[in-house]
Structures are given as C-alpha cells and as structure tokens.
C-alpha cells in the first residue's frame, strides 16, 4: 500500500529530482566545506530571489533569469575575490542581504507576491516535466566538469601557490568552481527553496566527513547520505502531511546524529 502511495505521480517526479540533485550537491557541498565557502552558497541562493523577481517583472523564464543572476554574481566574485580589501565573508553577507531585500520588495510589486513562501522554502512536489528535463541535462554536465577538474580543484584547495607553480591556471579553476556552484545553487534554489540550499549542500557533506578518510570517499558518501535523507524526508512529509524540504533537512540532521553517535561509540571501544 505504502509503496503504491509512494510512487504516486508527482512523488515519482520529486524523488527523481531529489536523487539527481543529491548527485550534484554531494561533491559540490564537500568542495564548499573544504574551501570554507558555505557563505558563498547562501549568498548565491539569496541572489536567486532577485532572479525570480526580474523574471516576473520582465515576463521571461524564471530558471533562465535565476541562472543568469547567480552566474553573473559568481563571475564578479571570482574576478574580485583577491583584490577585495574587505574580508570575503563580510562582502558576501552584504550582497546576500541586499539581493534578498531587493528580491522581496520587487516580488511584492508583482502577482507572484503570494508565492514568496514557495520561493523561500521550495516546492519539490510542484515539479514539472520541464524541470526534470533541465535537471537531466544540467546535473550530468556539472558532474562531468567536476570529474574532469577534481584533481585540479583539490590542488587549488590545498595550496593555490603549489598549483600555480605546477602550471595550473588558478584563476581559471576558481572561476570554473564558482560558475558550477552558481549553477548548482540556481537549480537547487528552484527545487528546494532559497533558504534550504545551504542545508542540501552542507549537512550531507558534514555527515560524510565523519565517515571518510579520503576526499573521494567523502564526496561519494555525501551523495549517498543526501539521497537517503531526500527519500526519507519525502516519505515522512508525505506520511505526516508536512512541508517537504524542512522535512528533508530534519532527515539530514537525524542521519548526522546517527553517524556521529555510531562513530563516537566505535572510537570508544
């Protein structure tokens, strides 16, 4: 019975989207953690509301506009990252709050104003076939980029100086990372909501850290945990009839606690 309920039509779409998103957010979340750029993910997510607002006002594709805003912001940040005299996190906080405020005010002037909650907290259950198709293209593309540049990304995380001496174009790698992150955040913010992007990026990776000894195993574990948390969250939100994405976040948290306790117990032995 439960199984039949579970594979009800929009649930199938939600599960598929959630699993695909997990594949991308696992490794991306790890990179964000390692680079200590959790704030950047948040900033890009907040800026995506500005994209929604512009799309509504200009009556163009929401996804396209969100992608454009996050990508432009990512490129600007990558360009000025080193020149800025202000600490990066301070700058990011200013941009995040400003774009969020602009987005909320802009949206309040459009018919979309009643949908603000959906933008902030997402609506995985309202996915369309188009969204799925987009995921089917963008996720493998982003994963392919990560696969190609994984070693270079790790090298630049460990030491940009060694990477440069090795002949890597550090600036290019950084821009590539920022652009991939912007794309990930743009997709994720539309599916799980602006305020939940950070949870999707950070929580599974943090849990995976407990279990891993190498960067690669951590990225894979993050994908697995993200998938498990997404399915659990969808299931319980369906059973209890509560909002989906907060339930996914709580599932991530539950998984974190479980693995943390297991690790502590094993170490004590």
């Amino acid at each position: 019975m439960i199984i039949i309920d579970f594979f009800d039509h929009f649930m199938v779409r939600a599960v598929c989207a959630g699993l695909m998103l997990s594949c991308l957010c696992g490794p991306m979340g790890c990179l964000v953690l390692w680079k200590r750029l959790g704030f950047l993910g948040d900033t890009l997510a907040h800026a995506s509301l500005l994209g929604v607002c512009i799309a509504t006002l200009a009556q163009v594709s929401t996804m396209g506009c969100v992608l454009a805003v996050t990508l432009i912001l990512a490129v600007i940040l990558a360009q000025n990252h080193e020149k800025s005299t202000m600490a990066l996190n301070t700058l990011l906080a200013i941009i995040a709050q400003t774009t969020l405020a602009l987005g909320v005010i802009g949206l309040s002037m459009t018919p979309q104003r009643s949908n603000l909650t959906a933008f902030l907290f997402g609506d995985l259950l309202a996915l369309t076939r188009m969204d799925l198709l987009l995921l089917l293209i963008l996720v493998p593309a982003a994963l392919f980029v990560l696969y190609l540049y994984w070693g270079d990304l790790l090298k630049t995380i460990l030491s940009e100086d060694i990477a440069a001496a090795d002949g890597l174009n550090v600036h290019y790698i950084r821009t590539l990372f920022m652009v991939t992150l912007a794309m990930t955040v743009a997709i994720a913010s539309q599916l799980v909501g602006i305020l939940m992007v950070a949870s999707l990026l950070i929580l599974p990776s943090a849990t995976a850290r407990i279990l891993s000894r190498t960067p690669e195993s951590m990225a894979k574990a993050a994908v697995g945990i993200s998938m498990a948390g997404t399915v659990l969250g969808l299931h319980f939100s369906w059973e209890a009839n509560v909002p989906t994405t907060p339930m996914i976040t709580l599932s991530f948290m539950a998984l974190f606690c479980v693995f943390y306790v297991i690790k502590k117990v094993i170490i004590k032995k």
Binding site: L33, W34, K35, R36, G151, L154, K155, I157, L158, S159, D161, I162, A164, A165, D166, S205, A206, R209, S212, R213, T214, P215, S217, M218
Partner: peptide
C-alpha cells in the same frame, strides 16, 4: 615549489599518501 604552509581544513580528509598522489 615549497610554500611556508598549506590550507588544511579539518573538514578535508586526506592522508599523506593521497596528498602526494595528487
């Protein structure tokens, strides 16, 4: 090139062998 130090974040699990392997 040998820098004075490198960026080792506690969230990045990497053994000496894997580091050299890069």
């Amino acid at each position: 090139y040998m820098p004075q130090s490198i960026h080792l974040d506690p969230t990045l699990p990497i053994t000496v062998e894997r580091f050299m392997d890069l």
